[in-house]
Design a protein around this nucleic acid. Sequence first.
DNA 1: CTGTTAGCGCATTCAA
DNA 2: TTGAATGCGCTAACAG
Lengths: 354, 354
Amino acid sequence: MRTRLKDVAERAGVSVKTVSNVVNGYQHVSPALRAKVTVALEELGYRPNLSARTLRRGRSGMIALALPSVRGPYFSELAHLIVREAEQHELTVLIDCTYGDLTREQTVAEGFRTQLIDGMILCPWQLGATDLRRREDTTPLVLLGERVSNGVDSVAVDSRAVGEAATEHLLSIGRQRIGVLRSLPSNTGGVVSKIRLDGYKRALAAAGLEFDPALVVDVDRPHGVDPRVATDALLDLPEPIDAIFCFNDELALVAMRRLYEQGYRVPDDIAVIGVDGIAAGATITPTLSTIVPDKQQIAAEAVRMLVERIEGDSAAARRRVKAGFTLLPRESTMGLQRVRRRPRTRPARQATRS
Amino acid sequence: MRTRLKDVAERAGVSVKTVSNVVNGYQHVSPALRAKVTVALEELGYRPNLSARTLRRGRSGMIALALPSVRGPYFSELAHLIVREAEQHELTVLIDCTYGDLTREQTVAEGFRTQLIDGMILCPWQLGATDLRRREDTTPLVLLGERVSNGVDSVAVDSRAVGEAATEHLLSIGRQRIGVLRSLPSNTGGVVSKIRLDGYKRALAAAGLEFDPALVVDVDRPHGVDPRVATDALLDLPEPIDAIFCFNDELALVAMRRLYEQGYRVPDDIAVIGVDGIAAGATITPTLSTIVPDKQQIAAEAVRMLVERIEGDSAAARRRVKAGFTLLPRESTMGLQRVRRRPRTRPARQATRS
DNA sequence: CTGTTAGCGCATTCAA
DNA sequence: TTGAATGCGCTAACAG
């Protein structure tokens, strides 16, 4: 049997309450007793039973983070930041993967790990306003993304502004026919993609250009159009394109590879811009121009709002926070950095295929 | 107040026990009562209080996963797989970031979230055998990696074999002077790096080549030598190298960029191989040859062993499972795929700098 | 300042 | 098959 508070009390010759006081860092304990208790605590190797404490306190100090996935550069970074942020508030994060599955998202919204978590942050892909209205669970909830505009706290980047910024950047370097590789994860309503495309259209309109639907190709991984095929589709257009706006960096990487395979040069022939700011983008050649959402801000705001809900009156008005982003112009739009060609000291090798 | 078992019981006009039976799917409940209870459950929107249940059962159905970070391609993928694997066993995963910090690792090993988690999987970077011997907490524990060889269950890839395989591959394509970019996270004892280097030496020896310490450069992010500088160091060696073995793919990406900046061609001048199998490696040009640890196996074995500990007698002998890996030869060692140069239909553009 | 006691919500003895 | 009572370990009222 595990050592309980009671065991420690007996050992130290004090009451349970006193031990509890010491464990919880209460002020009003005489030094003498505190010392005795501390020794007993140490000797018995006491560890509080968090379930019991949670049951009693009605608080566990844990929050859930429900994401479509924890894999992939975007969500893993976001998860990391949220975990860090939660730590600041002495909260532990329980991560749950929804796989963008509606049923799972509903389960989460509708009382997941009840009473074991003090609140949760959910990034919905399919969950709709209806689901949320039906919601009976009273656990504080903060939503990530623009999907739902219901009476729930949420934080998201302004996708329209993102679409606009990317497009404006491409226009600013003289590109006129801008293809779009739009990611439509098969399991999403694609709200974000839709809004981003609005931004694209707006930027075009502001530049006096007409929107051409043929320039927009949907990429629907993993069950839909392969990104390579989608890129080819853009390249095969009768009137050639001079830039591609990819809705995420991973897509951009694939597109750039495809452009290489098809003999196009980036950015000379075709400029490429992505969204996310994944690490590889800074390292590949050409380095990838991209738009970086302020994940740190997203994490901080989400946790802050959640903590407020947990601690404060749940009655406060629902808030909708807009997170910022940054345009990072790099080589895939601005042109390759000049490199110094080294004198070659030995003949170029042939790779020996085995 | 939240609806409790008792409330449901009153509503349905039955005892608490019966409701509990229904909730937990007990067999021996008469259909009539079951129906009544189900209705009451629905009407009141009952959600079990997991803290109470945990306290009573002595099991929470949660396990902790303590990693240095959840960011980055390797750990995020691993976390993902472990979460999936845990789900198969109806376990929820609580993720904790240690940042490779010794104190935090000790905290985790020494009774983290006691009684709230049924077991844990820890990937130690600094924790030593001493810490583990001292361990008083009885929560089942499984270790990831080769760091500790104590009386604890663990699963890890054979780093020596990895080092050997990478080196042999480079030798097999005719490279003889193989530089090593060795990652030594500032907070690690670098056990893995050491063992991998052993593999490198062994492969060299087997090929009748002498080991040259000058060929090994340590990269110590974020506080130590910049990977770019480290790459330069290899390039500045009096006797030129013809290959680089990078201890992880991210490092390889940086090295390849640096090679480009310095005017070397990959793989013609210098072949590059990494370890991890990150997604970007399949997409960049040249695609990155790499060694992919079988993360799925690691995840599966870790969870399996943990579950056995949780359910079975804790007395069973400690096991040390070796996970497999795969060599993925790609363009960065095998040579570029031939590309078709398209007829250019319009003059090459100049990127207009704004 | 410290001890006694009740009860958080649930699962589970033991009776019926 | 079902109901009543007990206690999991802890914290917070309330006494002392």
